[in-house]
Protein backbone atom coordinates (compact mmCIF):
# COMPACT_ATOMS: atom_id res chain seq x y z
CA UNK A 1 0.00 0.00 0.00
CA UNK A 2 1.69 3.22 -1.06
CA UNK A 3 1.91 5.73 1.72
CA UNK A 4 0.74 9.21 0.84
CA UNK A 5 3.83 11.36 1.08
CA UNK A 6 1.79 14.32 2.30
CA UNK A 7 0.37 12.37 5.17
CA UNK A 8 2.52 12.56 8.25
CA UNK A 9 3.20 9.80 10.70
CA UNK A 10 1.35 11.94 13.18
CA UNK A 11 -1.86 11.57 11.25
CA UNK A 12 -1.29 7.90 10.76
CA UNK A 13 -0.77 7.46 14.44
CA UNK A 14 -3.43 9.52 16.05
CA UNK A 15 -5.87 10.02 13.24
CA UNK A 16 -7.21 13.40 12.26
CA UNK A 17 -9.06 13.88 15.54
CA UNK A 18 -7.61 17.18 16.67
CA UNK A 19 -7.38 18.63 13.21
CA UNK A 20 -11.00 17.90 12.46
CA UNK A 21 -11.97 19.47 15.77
CA UNK A 22 -10.01 22.54 14.79
CA UNK A 23 -11.97 22.67 11.56
CA UNK A 24 -15.19 22.79 13.56
CA UNK A 25 -14.08 25.67 15.71
CA UNK A 26 -12.17 27.47 12.98
CA UNK A 27 -13.52 31.04 13.12
CA UNK A 28 -12.77 31.63 9.45
CA UNK A 29 -15.37 29.13 8.39
CA UNK A 30 -18.68 30.88 8.27
CA UNK A 31 -20.82 28.70 6.10
CA UNK A 32 -24.38 28.33 7.30
CA UNK A 33 -26.47 31.13 8.66
CA UNK A 34 -25.66 33.18 11.70
CA UNK A 35 -29.02 32.32 13.22
CA UNK A 36 -28.36 28.60 13.28
CA UNK A 37 -24.96 29.21 14.79
CA UNK A 38 -26.35 31.40 17.56
CA UNK A 39 -29.15 28.95 18.30
CA UNK A 40 -26.69 26.06 18.55
CA UNK A 41 -24.38 28.04 20.79
CA UNK A 42 -27.35 29.03 22.94
CA UNK A 43 -28.54 25.46 23.31
CA UNK A 44 -25.04 24.22 24.14
CA UNK A 45 -24.48 26.89 26.76
CA UNK A 46 -27.89 26.34 28.29
CA UNK A 47 -27.34 22.59 28.40
CA UNK A 48 -23.89 22.87 29.93
CA UNK A 49 -25.25 25.40 32.42
CA UNK A 50 -28.08 23.17 33.60
CA UNK A 51 -26.13 19.92 33.57
CA UNK A 52 -22.71 21.03 34.77
CA UNK A 53 -22.22 24.56 35.97
CA UNK A 54 -25.32 24.77 38.12
CA UNK A 55 -24.65 21.55 40.05
CA UNK A 56 -21.03 22.55 40.61
CA UNK A 57 -22.15 25.94 41.87
CA UNK A 58 -24.56 24.19 44.23
CA UNK A 59 -21.70 22.08 45.57
CA UNK A 60 -19.56 25.14 46.17
CA UNK A 61 -22.33 27.20 47.77
CA UNK A 62 -23.58 24.42 50.01
CA UNK A 63 -20.10 23.38 51.08
CA UNK A 64 -19.36 26.93 52.16
CA UNK A 65 -22.82 27.73 53.56
CA UNK A 66 -21.69 27.61 57.15
CA UNK A 67 -18.51 29.53 56.45
CA UNK A 68 -14.84 28.75 55.93
CA UNK A 69 -14.19 27.46 59.44
CA UNK A 70 -17.00 24.92 59.26
CA UNK A 71 -15.88 23.91 55.77
CA UNK A 72 -12.34 23.31 56.98
CA UNK A 73 -13.61 21.33 59.91
CA UNK A 74 -15.81 19.19 57.66
CA UNK A 75 -12.96 18.44 55.32
CA UNK A 76 -10.52 17.68 58.09
CA UNK A 77 -13.04 15.40 59.76
CA UNK A 78 -11.43 12.09 60.72
CA UNK A 79 -13.79 9.95 58.64
CA UNK A 80 -13.62 12.20 55.59
CA UNK A 81 -9.84 11.94 55.63
CA UNK A 82 -10.01 8.18 56.04
CA UNK A 83 -12.45 7.94 53.14
CA UNK A 84 -10.17 10.16 51.08
CA UNK A 85 -7.23 7.88 51.86
CA UNK A 86 -9.14 4.76 50.89
CA UNK A 87 -10.19 6.37 47.63
CA UNK A 88 -6.55 7.16 46.87
CA UNK A 89 -5.54 3.61 47.81
CA UNK A 90 -8.18 2.11 45.53
CA UNK A 91 -7.14 4.47 42.73
CA UNK A 92 -3.52 3.50 43.17
CA UNK A 93 -4.17 -0.23 42.96
CA UNK A 94 -6.62 0.12 40.10
CA UNK A 95 -4.15 2.16 38.08
CA UNK A 96 -1.17 -0.07 38.89
CA UNK A 97 -2.89 -3.38 38.18
CA UNK A 98 -4.76 -2.19 35.11
CA UNK A 99 -1.69 -0.53 33.63
CA UNK A 100 0.31 -3.74 33.80
CA UNK A 101 -2.64 -5.77 32.59
CA UNK A 102 -3.61 -3.25 29.90
CA UNK A 103 -0.12 -3.08 28.41
CA UNK A 104 0.22 -6.86 28.40
CA UNK A 105 -3.22 -7.46 26.89
CA UNK A 106 -2.87 -4.73 24.26
CA UNK A 107 0.53 -6.11 23.31
CA UNK A 108 -0.77 -9.64 23.06
CA UNK A 109 -3.87 -8.79 21.04
CA UNK A 110 -2.27 -6.29 18.70
CA UNK A 111 0.96 -8.10 17.89
CA UNK A 112 0.07 -11.78 17.87
CA UNK A 113 -2.45 -13.66 15.83
CA UNK A 114 -4.11 -16.67 17.39
CA UNK A 115 -7.52 -18.21 17.65
CA UNK A 116 -9.76 -16.60 20.21
CA UNK A 117 -8.28 -13.10 20.01
CA UNK A 118 -11.74 -11.64 19.50
CA UNK A 119 -13.09 -13.53 22.49
CA UNK A 120 -10.43 -12.09 24.77
CA UNK A 121 -11.03 -8.60 23.41
CA UNK A 122 -14.76 -8.97 24.09
CA UNK A 123 -14.14 -10.29 27.61
CA UNK A 124 -12.03 -7.28 28.46
CA UNK A 125 -14.96 -5.02 27.60
CA UNK A 126 -17.35 -6.74 30.02
CA UNK A 127 -16.98 -4.13 32.77
CA UNK A 128 -18.23 -1.52 30.29
CA UNK A 129 -21.46 -3.39 29.68
CA UNK A 130 -22.23 -4.79 33.12
CA UNK A 131 -23.89 -2.60 35.70
CA UNK A 132 -21.38 -1.92 38.51
CA UNK A 133 -23.98 -2.97 41.09
CA UNK A 134 -24.21 -6.39 39.51
CA UNK A 135 -20.41 -6.56 39.41
CA UNK A 136 -20.38 -5.90 43.15
CA UNK A 137 -23.00 -8.59 43.77
CA UNK A 138 -21.04 -11.08 41.71
CA UNK A 139 -18.00 -10.43 43.86
CA UNK A 140 -20.03 -11.06 47.00
CA UNK A 141 -21.41 -14.28 45.56
CA UNK A 142 -17.91 -15.39 44.63
CA UNK A 143 -15.83 -14.29 47.57
CA UNK A 144 -18.41 -13.87 50.35
CA UNK A 145 -18.87 -16.34 53.20
CA UNK A 146 -21.56 -18.21 51.30
CA UNK A 147 -19.74 -17.88 47.97
CA UNK A 148 -17.79 -20.35 45.89
CA UNK A 149 -14.46 -19.20 47.21
CA UNK A 150 -15.81 -18.30 50.67
CA UNK A 151 -14.73 -21.45 52.49
CA UNK A 152 -11.25 -21.40 51.03
CA UNK A 153 -10.72 -17.73 51.89
CA UNK A 154 -12.10 -18.13 55.39
CA UNK A 155 -9.87 -21.08 56.20
CA UNK A 156 -6.88 -18.99 55.13
CA UNK A 157 -8.02 -15.98 57.14
CA UNK A 158 -8.51 -13.74 54.11
CA UNK A 159 -11.37 -11.29 54.18
CA UNK A 160 -12.41 -9.72 50.92
CA UNK A 161 -16.10 -8.86 51.12
CA UNK A 162 -16.94 -5.95 53.47
CA UNK A 163 -13.22 -5.21 53.70
CA UNK A 164 -10.64 -3.07 51.95
CA UNK A 165 -9.49 -5.82 49.53
CA UNK A 166 -13.06 -6.06 48.25
CA UNK A 167 -13.22 -2.32 47.66
CA UNK A 168 -9.95 -2.49 45.74
CA UNK A 169 -11.04 -5.53 43.74
CA UNK A 170 -14.32 -3.91 42.77
CA UNK A 171 -12.53 -0.75 41.69
CA UNK A 172 -10.04 -2.72 39.62
CA UNK A 173 -12.89 -4.59 37.97
CA UNK A 174 -14.82 -1.49 37.01
CA UNK A 175 -11.76 0.31 35.59
CA UNK A 176 -10.38 -2.77 33.87
CA UNK A 177 -10.75 -1.80 30.18
CA UNK A 178 -9.54 1.82 30.15
CA UNK A 179 -5.79 1.41 29.65
CA UNK A 180 -6.30 -1.46 27.22
CA UNK A 181 -8.85 0.49 25.22
CA UNK A 182 -6.48 3.44 24.78
CA UNK A 183 -3.43 1.34 23.95
CA UNK A 184 -4.87 -1.26 21.64
CA UNK A 185 -5.62 0.89 18.58
CA UNK A 186 -2.30 2.72 18.87
CA UNK A 187 -0.34 -0.53 19.09
CA UNK A 188 -2.36 -2.01 16.26
CA UNK A 189 -1.42 0.87 13.99
CA UNK A 190 2.24 0.48 14.79
CA UNK A 191 2.26 -3.16 13.74
CA UNK A 192 5.12 -5.52 14.39
CA UNK A 193 7.58 -4.60 11.71
CA UNK A 194 9.57 -1.97 13.57
CA UNK A 195 10.01 -4.43 16.40
CA UNK A 196 10.95 -7.20 13.99
CA UNK A 197 13.49 -4.94 12.34
CA UNK A 198 15.04 -4.22 15.73
CA UNK A 199 15.00 -7.90 16.71
CA UNK A 200 16.72 -8.83 13.45
CA UNK A 201 19.53 -6.48 14.38
CA UNK A 202 19.91 -8.39 17.61
CA UNK A 203 18.04 -6.12 20.05
CA UNK A 204 16.60 -7.88 23.12
CA UNK A 205 13.00 -7.69 24.27
CA UNK A 206 13.63 -4.99 26.86
CA UNK A 207 15.55 -2.76 24.45
CA UNK A 208 12.81 -3.16 21.88
CA UNK A 209 10.11 -2.19 24.35
CA UNK A 210 12.08 0.77 25.67
CA UNK A 211 13.27 2.18 22.35
CA UNK A 212 10.54 1.17 19.86
CA UNK A 213 7.26 0.28 21.56
CA UNK A 214 7.18 2.63 24.52
CA UNK A 215 7.91 5.90 22.69
CA UNK A 216 4.99 5.05 20.47
CA UNK A 217 2.46 4.36 23.20
CA UNK A 218 3.51 6.65 26.02
CA UNK A 219 0.91 9.38 25.56
CA UNK A 220 -1.89 6.93 24.97
CA UNK A 221 -0.72 5.04 28.05
CA UNK A 222 -0.76 8.15 30.20
CA UNK A 223 -4.17 9.08 28.83
CA UNK A 224 -5.51 5.62 29.66
CA UNK A 225 -4.06 5.84 33.16
CA UNK A 226 -5.79 9.17 33.70
CA UNK A 227 -9.15 7.86 32.51
CA UNK A 228 -8.68 4.79 34.69
CA UNK A 229 -7.81 6.93 37.72
CA UNK A 230 -10.75 9.26 37.17
CA UNK A 231 -13.17 6.38 36.95
CA UNK A 232 -11.64 4.69 39.99
CA UNK A 233 -12.05 7.87 42.00
CA UNK A 234 -15.73 8.23 41.24
CA UNK A 235 -16.80 4.59 41.39
CA UNK A 236 -19.90 4.14 43.51
CA UNK A 237 -22.10 1.19 42.56
CA UNK A 238 -19.79 -1.81 42.77
CA UNK A 239 -17.92 -0.46 45.76
CA UNK A 240 -21.17 0.39 47.51
CA UNK A 241 -22.37 -3.20 47.31
CA UNK A 242 -19.17 -4.87 48.39
CA UNK A 243 -17.94 -2.41 51.03
CA UNK A 244 -20.70 -2.84 53.61
CA UNK A 245 -20.42 0.91 54.34
CA UNK A 246 -18.17 0.52 57.37
CA UNK A 247 -17.41 4.08 58.36
CA UNK A 248 -13.68 4.72 58.66
CA UNK A 249 -12.93 1.24 57.31
CA UNK A 250 -14.42 0.53 53.92
CA UNK A 251 -15.97 3.84 53.02
CA UNK A 252 -14.57 5.57 49.97
CA UNK A 253 -15.17 9.25 49.42
CA UNK A 254 -18.26 8.85 47.20
CA UNK A 255 -19.78 6.43 49.73
CA UNK A 256 -18.95 8.80 52.55
CA UNK A 257 -20.73 11.63 50.74
CA UNK A 258 -23.86 9.51 50.48
CA UNK A 259 -23.79 8.58 54.16
CA UNK A 260 -23.35 12.19 55.26
CA UNK A 261 -26.16 13.25 53.00
CA UNK A 262 -28.50 10.55 54.31
CA UNK A 263 -27.73 11.79 57.82
CA UNK A 264 -28.94 15.28 56.75
CA UNK A 265 -25.41 16.52 57.32
CA UNK A 266 -25.65 18.53 54.12
CA UNK A 267 -22.74 20.90 54.66
CA UNK A 268 -20.36 18.03 55.44
CA UNK A 269 -21.65 16.04 52.46
CA UNK A 270 -21.01 18.93 50.13
CA UNK A 271 -17.62 19.62 51.68
CA UNK A 272 -16.59 16.03 50.99
CA UNK A 273 -18.03 16.35 47.49
CA UNK A 274 -15.94 19.42 46.88
CA UNK A 275 -12.81 17.33 47.45
CA UNK A 276 -13.95 15.01 44.67
CA UNK A 277 -14.73 17.98 42.46
CA UNK A 278 -11.27 19.47 42.97
CA UNK A 279 -9.65 16.11 42.20
CA UNK A 280 -11.78 15.83 39.09
CA UNK A 281 -10.78 19.30 37.91
CA UNK A 282 -7.08 18.51 38.42
CA UNK A 283 -7.49 15.30 36.44
CA UNK A 284 -9.36 17.19 33.74
CA UNK A 285 -6.54 19.70 33.36
CA UNK A 286 -3.88 16.99 33.19
CA UNK A 287 -6.04 15.10 30.76
CA UNK A 288 -6.28 18.03 28.40
CA UNK A 289 -2.56 18.67 28.56
CA UNK A 290 -1.89 15.02 27.76
CA UNK A 291 -4.43 15.05 24.98
CA UNK A 292 -2.70 18.01 23.38
CA UNK A 293 0.68 16.29 23.67
CA UNK A 294 -0.71 13.03 22.43
CA UNK A 295 -1.95 14.70 19.28
CA UNK A 296 1.02 16.95 18.69
CA UNK A 297 3.92 14.75 19.67
CA UNK A 298 2.87 11.54 18.02
CA UNK A 299 5.45 12.21 15.31
CA UNK A 300 8.33 11.97 17.72
CA UNK A 301 11.20 14.30 18.66
Amino acid sequence: MPRDAERTYEQDVSGDGLQSLQKVIDPHRDEGSLGVKCALIGISVLFLGIMLVLPLAVVAVNALREGWEAYKENILDEYTIKAFRLTLTAMFFAVAVNTVFGVAAAYLLSKFYFRGREVIAALIDIPFSISPVIAGLVFILTYGNMGWMGGFLKSHGIKIVFAVPGVILATIFVTFPFVFRELFPVMNVQGREEEEAAALMGAGGLTIFRRITFPHIKWALLYGIILCGARAMGEFGAVSVISGHLRGKTNTLPLHVEILYNEFNTAAAFAASSVLVVMAVIILIIRNLVEMKKGRKAGGR
Partner: peptide, 11 residues
Protein backbone atom coordinates in the same frame (compact mmCIF):
# COMPACT_ATOMS: atom_id res chain seq x y z
CA UNK B 1 16.07 -6.80 5.67
CA UNK B 2 14.30 -3.88 4.03
CA UNK B 3 10.60 -4.14 4.87
CA UNK B 4 7.92 -3.33 2.36
CA UNK B 5 6.89 -0.17 4.19
CA UNK B 6 10.47 0.29 5.41
CA UNK B 7 9.51 -0.01 9.09
CA UNK B 8 11.84 2.84 10.02
CA UNK B 9 12.01 3.58 13.72
CA UNK B 10 9.76 6.60 13.69
CA UNK B 11 10.93 8.04 16.98
Amino acid sequence: LVFQNYALFRY
